[in-house]
Each structure stands twice: as structure tokens, then as C-alpha cells.
Amino acid sequence: MSKVLVIAEHDGAALNPSTAKCVACATTIDGAKIDIVVLGASVSGVASEAAGISPVARVLTVERAENEHAIAAVFAPQVAALADDYDYVFGPSTAFGKDLMPRVAALLGVNQVSDIMSVEGSHKFKRPIYAGNAIVTVEAPGDSKVVATVRTASYQAADGGNSAPIESTDVNVELPTHTRFVELQAGQSDRPDLQTASKVVSGGRALASEENFEMIFKLADTIGAGVGSSRAAVDAGYIAPETQVGQTGQIIAPDLYIAIGISGAIQHLTGIKDAGTIVAINKDEEAPIFEVADIGLVGDLFQIVPELTDALS
């Protein structure tokens, strides 16, 4: 039997879908028995959500005032202590998991396997490197624990319908006070979240201003899509940073991705490799985005986008 501990990601109110994707990855390990741990100040709601994920055996909760915010330096010693009973410790390759998991790995004296795309054996995994330009099969030492992040875009969330037992645990470790939460400025948006949206409309540098991005929002709202962007658009201040898609932004896998005025730099393409259908709208027929697009339309976005929005309304 292989015991897997999945670290839940949540905001205190709701479980992040990345958790069910980590469970999906864990189920592909031979003989996996999967527990989820939820750290927080008060997590009963989140824990019952986690208990619904199949085929989770048990949900552990660690409730302490210090756990109100996900501070890696505070969470890591607790996770490392819990890891004693497990062969695998998995977290999502989101900002939360990327921050926390390497700190856990170092406390356990192992390297981390980053961004698992597939499980190839008990200690063998595939992962992307060079912005996804190469896929490497890696092997972690057979005699030590595997600490890993799961590339969430490679997995569909595990099914619900479970009702795993929830157990509260104490972890007796000293927690540092050297790192303190100050504030979170979350983007205000009623639009679908990029990680879970089935459709995403993205705008690039060609939009040329914050005002022009309204066009992207309109099209997105017309088809119920989330809104993404390229780094160039974010750097120019046209749109909020959390919308950036790519190597250093979000890695996403919607059914439909519409790239508008985006050239298709490798760093951007890394973020959409797993999209179902890619549509590219670009005035330059040589733009690299067309090499990966399922449907290409060459032309001026300022004409095409309003017309398209009308046609789909």
C-alpha cells in the first residue's frame, strides 16, 4: 500500500478545485490510500467538501489560529510532521503549492518533484521543463518519501460522492512568528475563474490600452468565458497580473481558448498546451500562435472582436 497525503488548498471558505486534481493524480499511484489534510483556523466547511472527494480515505484537520493564512513557513513544519506516516506528500502546482511544498521537502531532506504530468511508476514521473519544450521522465530515490507538486492542468478533478471520515489532529511543533500576513488584494471579478473556466478569452499587447480591453470583457461575458492575458498586456498595465497565462502565469486547460492579438511566444503557449480548441485572431498570418491554433482568423481585432461579439450575442 502507498500512503498519500494531499495538502488541501482553500481560502477558509471553500476548497480550491486544485485539491481534487491532486487526488486524481494520487489515484494513479499503485495501491494508493489517500488522505487529505486541511490546515486552517476553522475549517469544518472546507473539510466536509474535501470528504466528498472520491476515493479519499480520511480527511485530517489541523485547526490553529496561526493557520488562518497559508504562510509557508508556518504550514511547512506541520506538514513535515504529518508526513511521517506517509510515502507521498502532494500539493498543487499553484502559487500556494509552489510556495509551500519545497519548504516541506527541504525539512524532510528530499528534493521535490515539481509539476507532475503523469505517474509512470512508484517513483517515476513525467514533468515539463524548458517552458514545456521538453518533457522529462524523472525518478525520485526509491528509499525516500516523494514530495511533489501536481500540474493541475494535466488532471480532471476527481469525482465527488464520497463521505470520508473527518478527524481533527494536533501537531505539536513550534511555529515561527517571523512571517506575518498583512493583506490580500484579490481581483474583483464575477467572471469564471481561469483554472476552472471551460472557456477563456485572452487579450495581448495589440489591445493597446486598458479601455480597449473592454472589448475582451464583452466577448468573454457574451459566451460566459474567463478572461486571460499575455505578459505584455499585463506589463503594459492594460489588465491585472493574475490574468496572465503562461510559464510564469497560469497554466490552464479550458475547452475553448481564444487568443486575441497575442503572438504566441513559447512562454505563453506553455500555459495553453492542454486547451481543447485554440482559436487565434491576429493580423499577422506569420504569427507563431497560428502554428498551434485549431481555428485561425487573420485580420484586425478591432474589427473582428465587436463583430464576433454581435454574432454570438
Partner: peptide, 21 residues
């Protein structure tokens, strides 16, 4: 964590081009 084998990613194929909206 040792690299055992490197492979190119599965390439996406260029699809169709449409003429208009």
C-alpha cells in the same frame, strides 16, 4: 530526482483557417 529520459512535447497540429467572423 534523476532525469531518466527526455522527449519532445506532443505537438499540437495547425488546424484550419477561416476567412471571416
Amino acid at each position: 530526482v534523476n532525469a531518466v529520459e527526455f522527449a519532445p512535447p506532443e505537438a499540437r497540429q495547425r488546424g484550419i483557417t477561416v476567412d471571416d467572423v
